[in-house]
Write a protein that binds this DNA or RNA. Structure first.
Length: 485
RNA sequence: CGGGGCGUGGCGCAGCUUGGUAGCGCGCAUCGUUCGGGACGAUGAGGUCGGAGGUUCAAAUCCUCUCGCCCCGACCA
């Protein structure tokens, strides 16, 4: 396949997954490289996918009582230094502004890698009483983290995301909030991106710097590697105390509020590509697909062109809204190119359905509907299209999720010895559920020797007494190991 | 930071060993013929060969320095 004559040919997914990913992102026009190392230009098609998931997540966040607001891009050095573990964790990744206005600044300004420090300082005066709590804020912005190795969408120096920040009077309430955030992410991942996720807790080593604990959702890509798809942090009183935030509680005692923060980024565009894509390119879940149906008119004569156009117009008019009031996103491809070219064009871009309408179809009062995933073709009467398409899109959405779930299950294995563990990691990959004693040394040894890390301690992992695969000490439950992005 | 590779129209490359004033495919533009799985022909636009310095009558090509990118390693929430 390396000698394919077409410019839009892509690396085979089965030969070289990372090469395939880069090809798809570039050639499906999701994004492009930028003049700045490690940064990317998000193109309209890629941005539209981001907007779909962003809009849904924004609805969920607002529905759970949070309000959007904005904090500045710059964090004064002194603020970033206040929470010791936080600054230590982020230090190598922070970009600094040291000069502005033609002279060196008295105090360097960090370009936010995340906003916890700035927010804790900013809300200090807003929280005086337990009546001011909970304080539920959400920010849509960009952050910068200086990365050594970058990948389009998956790990870029600058990325777009949402960061929620909340403050609560009790630890219990904050813990519930951590769960609320994670649930928003699960809904977007599973119901919109059709990516099944496993929720759980990060190990001490993998948690957010400055957090008491971190919860996350973890997904499997089509190369069986893991990708962290969203994190939610219990900050406890760490940032509150560092910033000196206190409120007067019901019992007239001054207390530091409990904080949480949670984030979801443009990385999920990359996750969607890697969770569903195939040898022909992107496969998009209908709910976030910028175009759900690509119409390819087929004609030779001008007379046919007019007749096809009229038929398409009638279908489009009827498709505007179905009985449930849902519009179907349709693009009619009138470009002066051959039908075959257009077929490949829209398949590369992952459009769920293609609709071919030509003279033969008009004679039969039908159109040919082709499904992206298996390229199956079906003749559908023109008058049936408006009411059949929404249901087919819903079914397609469910099929993608079921397919991804089956793939994940087929690549998840239970292992009880280190020998078996190493064999599975090397020869099969995927998710591995294995006993772990909870010791950081064992965790580190596995990472160094196999490249697999503890992705998560799953919430639904049942109590199960066993021996840690590394040192044989008692393990209470299985944890999820995998090689990860 | 260590090892290796690469910078030539938008993209992918040849040319460099053996200096002689830049070429191919795709893409792009116009016109015509085409159109149910990546059409074809004709014409045309587009490049100070990553940058600086040097050798030479003459440098994409040889020499020196420099910048950038990719891969491997190291480092990583």
């Amino acid at each position: 396949m390396s000698a394919s004559p077409y410019v839009t040919s892509i690396t085979r997914q089965s030969d070289d997954f990372p090469g395939w990913y880069t090809d798809v992102v570039l050639k499906a026009e999701l994004a492009d490289y930028s003049p700045v190392r490690g940064c990317m230009i998000i193109r309209p098609y890629g941005y539209a996918i981001w907007e779909s998931m962003r809009d849904e997540l924004d609805r969920l966040i607002k529905a759970t009582g949070h309000k959007n607001m904005y904090f500045p891009l710059f964090v004064p050095r002194s603020l970033l230094l206040k929470e010791a573990e936080h600054v230590e964790g982020f230090d190598p990744q922070v970009a600094w502004v040291t000069r502005a206005g033609g002279r060196d600044l008295d105090e360097p300004l960090a370009i936010r890698p995340t906003s916890e420090a700035l927010i804790a300082e900013g809300v200090k005066d807003w929280i005086q009483s337990y009546r001011d709590l909970p304080l539920l804020m959400n920010l849509w912005n960009n952050v910068v983290r200086w990365e050594l190795r970058t990948r389009l969408f998956l790990r870029t120096t600058e990325f777009l995301w949402q960061e929620a920040h909340t403050f609560h009077a009790s630890e219990e309430e904050a813990a519930a909030e951590v769960a609320t955030g994670l649930e928003c992410y699960r809904v977007v991942a599973e119901e919109w991106l059709a990516i099944p996720v496993i929720s759980g807790r990060k190990t001490e080593h993998e948690k957010f710097p400055g957090a008491v604990y971190t919860r996350a959702i973890e997904a499997m890509m089509r190369d069986t590697k893991a990708l962290q798809a969203g994190t939610s942090h219990m900050l406890g009183q760490n940032f509150s105390k560092a910033a000196g935030i206190e409120f007067l509680d019901r019992d007239n005692v001054r207390r530091a509020p409990f904080g949480t923060s949670w984030g979801f980024s443009t990385r999920m565009v990359g996750a969607t590509v890697m969770a569903h894509g195939d040898e022909f390119g992107l496969v998009l879940p209908p709910r976030v697909a910028p175009i759900q149906v690509a119409v390819v008119p087929i004609f030779r004569s001008e007379e046919d062109r007019v007749r096809v156009a009229e038929a398409i117009d009638r279908v489009l008019a009827a498709l505007g809204e179905d009985a449930a009031g849902r519009a179907v996103r349709v693009e009619v491809d009138w470009r002066d190119a051959s039908p075959g070219f257009k077929f490949n064009h829209w398949e590369l871009r992952g459009v769920p359905f293609r609709l071919e309408i030509g003279p033969r179809d008009l004679a039969a009062g039908q159109a040919v509907l082709v499904k992206r995933t298996d390229r199956s073709r079906e003749a559908v009467p023109l008058e049936a299209l408006p009411h059949t398409l929404p249901g087919r899109l819903d079914a397609y959405q469910r099929e993608l999720f079921e397919r991804a779930l089956a793939f994940r299950d087929a690549n998840t294995r239970r292992v009880d010895t280190y020998e078996a563990f190493r064999t599975v990691v090397e020869e099969q990959g995927g998710f591995i559920l294995a006993p772990w004693c909870g010791d950081g040394g064992c965790e580190r040894r596995v990472a160094e020797e196999t490249g697999a890390t503890i992705r998560i301690i799953p919430d639904d992992s049942p109590d199960e007494a066993a021996a840690c695969i590394v040192d044989g000490r008692p393990s209470e439950r299985r944890v999820l190991f995998a090689r990860a992005y």
